[in-house]
């Protein structure tokens, strides 16, 4: 995966039990559940859900693994892989053993993954119609060194229709992000601007930021976010500053 991006964490409290007996909808059902129906078993819907809040990358992997488990924990016959392509900015849900199926979007999963809400027909591979809200590509990211957040304020900042809270007894990083106009609305939707996120500076560095790894990712909680400012004559680029709080190393 090339380039800078922000990945969200999807909140989940479980239950992690999946498969035929799993409840269809979990408490606080945001985006943590994905389901499939296989053509050979059209009356069975198999759900997959992690037990706790999970990073975008790991979420896709965990769905694939859960659905691929033996029935009844997983789907009947298929082995599944859920992937995201940074170049096309699309999520693909595919059956690796050519089983015909259809994904089912649960809660806000449709927009989160970039699919339409109701899918129909059968296929062995499905690709989203639009860019997901759970992972937003950026043109560039600048991370400032950690500051001591020992006296954090409890803040509320507004984006869209949501007033999330910021907190922490932590280190904080000021992170500036630059994005294209096309991606700005995805960012404003909220998943990548609130709660816990992971901001990758580029695709070559997949380890955490540290004084000796200044290009690493910053994984923490969004404590503050400024408004988007436009740049360029056609306002094609926008920027905003985020304050990310990371836990103290004890």
């Amino acid at each position: 995966m090339a380039g800078a991006r922000i990945e969200s964490y999807a909140y989940s409290e479980g239950p992690a039990a999946i498969g035929a007996a799993a409840p269809a909808v979990a408490k606080y059902q945001g985006v943590q559940t994905l389901a499939v129906i296989e053509q050979a078993y059209p009356s069975d819907t198999t759900y997959a859900r992690p037990a706790e809040a999970t990073l975008w990358d790991d979420l896709l992997v965990s769905w694939g693994t859960s659905l691929s488990s033996a029935y009844p924990m997983g789907a009947h016959a298929g082995h599944y892989l859920v992937t995201y392509s940074q170049t096309t900015k699309r999520v693909t849900i595919a059956s690796t053993n050519s089983v015909s199926f259809r994904p089912v979007m649960v809660g806000s999963g449709a927009t989160y993954l970039g699919f339409t809400q109701s899918l129909s027909g059968w296929a062995t591979s499905w690709t989203g119609a639009s860019a997901p809200l759970g992972c937003v590509e950026m043109v560039g990211v600048t991370v400032k060194p950690a500051e001591d957040g020992a006296k954090p304020t409890m803040t509320r900042y507004r984006h869209g229709r949501c007033y999330p809270v910021g907190w922490g007894n932590t280190f904080t990083h000021k992170v500036s992000v630059w994005i294209r106009q096309a991606d700005a609305q995805h960012l404003s939707a909220g998943w990548c601007l609130t709660g816990r996120v992971r901001i990758f500076q580029d695709s070559a560095h997949l380890t955490a930021y540290s004084p000796t790894n200044l290009s690493g990712y910053v994984d923490g909680y969004v404590v503050n976010a400024t408004n988007l400012k436009a740049y360029g004559a056609t306002e094609d680029f926008l920027t905003m500053d985020l304050t990310i709080a990371t836990g103290r190393a004890s």
């Binding site: 909140y11 408490k27 606080y28 945001g30 806000s108 927009t111 939707a189 909220g190 709660g195």
Partner: peptide, 17 residues
């Protein structure tokens, strides 16, 4: 009642969650 980051309320009955 809980509101997800994209502003939607969850649960089919308001009292559930």
């Amino acid at each position: 009642a809980p509101v997800s980051p994209d502003g939607t309320t969850t649960g089919s009955a308001l009292a559930d969650e």
